[in-house]
Design a protein around this nucleic acid. Structure first.
Lengths: 216, 216
DNA sequence: GTCTATATCTAGATAGAC
DNA sequence: GTCTATCTAGATATAGAC
């Protein structure tokens, strides 16, 4: 049982963990190309030797950071989509959950990074996350259709893609404007369309403690 | 009247123009941070002296390239939105027009580049483009509402943001999957929702020569 | 107007001391 | 395990010849 870092017995964050977290932050802020090992080390407060001891190099560290971010994002999204209420409520909870719009999506951002998109290994966690996300949203929608809440003839997979795309595109529009308003508008527009598919009004069900603001 | 490049009288593209076009391509492929002056010069086939003669530096050249790309994108989008048919037809024409999905949007991509987003000057053309685009889509939708084609109560600005976001987000999902399918699914899902807002079926009007495949 | 040579700084990684 | 030196290459810009 080797010591996995000097911090474990001091109550501080182990070196390896600090490297991963620093890299998560920097990838989110600057992307892969814009993030240098030097910047990671400075933020983590460790020397170069530590980084190359724990990881093979920049790509390996980035992979660990991306996988971690994807896990965290999935946990957050799934919590919304597994919440109380109708299918509409669950989708609305996911759409209205988003935070820090101007920072963008830590995972979606990576798709614009050439070195990431061109690397099968680095792209895999992105693909896996969005695949799971769309599948989960589609599942929620399909349940709504089966329950008679949403219009029959609704294509769950297509609508799930629209939901995920609206969020990702909302980030893009908001960053272009340096203002979260376009993101909010896109979500509002989608929820308005979605509510038109609801045969039983979403508020006809008890929505439970979540109490998300309804759009229409 | 100074000579604005040695190519004008030889039928070849002037140096300055070659620099702008090369930069457009590289910004699209690699983003701002990932594009070096050296790469631009190599693609344009000119020496460094030419670049620093025509432009102050990388940022100035990038600004010219981004403005050019925005103009081209606007022309293309506006053509779709000014086409024949109903409001649904026009929006569908815009949504279905998209090409080279895996390359992403040359303008939307820039929003993920820190140096661009943090520069008021470089961000301005992105903001202007998406602002015009949303305004134009909203105009089409508002006309549809006034004409009684689309449901009264529709919020043109919000729906326009949803349309633009679906496209931008579709690119993100497609690049994550390395497959255009999620883009197509997102568009299909949105058109299905939109068609539910159509009080008069879109095919009830003569759609003219455009003849876009209808989704539902 | 265009070129090559040069300068400075940083990226990314290795070597080896402690 | 962690540190500081050191290395090679490339980014970005300037200088000055042609």
């Amino acid at each position: 049982m080797r010591n996995s870092g000097s911090g474990g017995d001091r109550g501080s964050v182990p070196t390896r963990e600090r490297l991963v977290r620093s890299t998560q932050e920097l990838l989110w802020e600057r992307g892969y190309v814009g993030t240098s090992p030097k910047a990671i080390l400075e933020r983590a407060g460790v020397g170069q030797g530590s980084m190359y001891h724990h990881f093979d190099g920049k790509a390996a560290l980035a992979l660990a950071a991306i996988e971690r971010s994807a896990e965290e994002l999935w946990a957050s999204a799934d919590a919304c989509l597994s919440g109380p209420g109708t299918a509409y409520d669950k989708v609305a909870a996911y759409l209205l959950r988003e935070r820090q719009v101007l920072r963008g999506c830590p995972i979606g951002r990576m798709t614009q990074d050439r070195d990431v998109a061109c690397s099968a290994e680095l792209r895999r966690p992105l693909d896996a996350l969005f695949d799971r996300l769309r599948a989960r949203i589609a599942e929620v929608i399909a349940e709504g259709v089966r329950a008679g809440e949403l219009a029959a003839g609704t294509d769950p997979a297509a609508l799930a893609a629209t939901v995920a795309a609206t969020v990702q595109g909302g980030y893009v529009l908001a960053r272009a404007a340096d203002d979260p308003a376009p993101f909010d508008a896109a979500v509002r527009g989608l929820l308005a369309l979605l509510s038109a598919q609801v045969t039983t009004g979403p508020t006809a069900y008890p929505t439970g403690p979540a109490g998300h603001r309804s759009i229409r």
